[in-house]
Design a protein around this nucleic acid. Structure first.
Lengths: 129, 129
DNA sequence: ACCTGGTTCCATGCAATGCAATGTACCTTG
DNA sequence: CAAGGTACATTGCATTGCATGGAACCAGGT
């Protein structure tokens, strides 16, 4: 990779820290519709733009998921290239993903609320949403 | 506080990791409308529910913000109790907050998109599943 | 004066995690 | 066989949330 790639500017220090703890569940989410292998996950994360990362991040993460029994793995031959290790959600993995799916909106809304411009004391009550 | 509160177990690990990198900017956001002191910030974070944290987290964070010149501090007497150290945004602090305000929605939407149930390719109604 | 309790500030050590750098193995192509 | 691409993996580092513990200051009761 080009160390001096200027297109990397978007990946500031803040984004790197934002990924912490979220990446794990994003990877689980990507496996929701079926088994995936490492480089495939890497590509799909890249497509999201904000969650792009590197092999040095994904493989240790996948190892942790396997250690914690959130995923099962199976080797599978490839039509062209070396064999791939496919990762698939276990029951515990689906449970963890479901839990995060509930946790995330709460967290997201809390941050949204803090970041939103000063609340306007518009009359009383809330305008709901 | 209840150190061993079992009701915290479900979201504790995930939420704890979620706070990484976000807390810094949430604290900056809280100072947007004026100077704040440590315990005050702690209380306001507590009110958000999802961003509640402890002194052991906030004070080292505030030290880093000061080290990086994102905030300035001034001592101020208290009507009842020991003096308080008030933290106020510097120009660099406002810039960092502004940058994050731009970064956050991109990140948030990326996670939302991944977590959303499988995208249903337009087409017409899908009756049940 | 002394002590108890509340408030506020802060430092230290640990654990989790993203990441760059690097290495290994396999497959295809020439 | 040699070269290059694909895929998996490990190591060491920096950052950061957090539990724990402590210090300083003030007010009120005894």
């Amino acid at each position: 990779m080009e160390p001096g790639d200027p297109s990397n500017r978007t990946a500031s220090k803040a984004e790197s820290q934002l990924r912490k703890g979220v990446l794990e569940y994003c990877v689980l989410a990507l496996m929701r519709d079926g088994a995936r292998y490492g480089v495939e996950l890497l590509r799909e994360l890249e497509e999201t733009g904000a969650l792009a990362t590197s092999q040095g991040t994904v493989y240790p993460l996948l190892s942790r998921l396997r250690r914690d029994r959130l995923v099962d793995t199976t080797w599978q031959e490839s039509a062209s290239g070396p064999p791939r290790r496919y990762y698939e959600l276990t029951e515990a993995g689906r449970a963890a993903l479901a839990e995060f799916t509930g946790t995330w909106p709460v967290f997201r809304d809390a941050v949204d609320h803090l970041l939103a411009p000063k609340a306007q004391p518009q009359a009383s009550g809330e305008t709901g949403r």
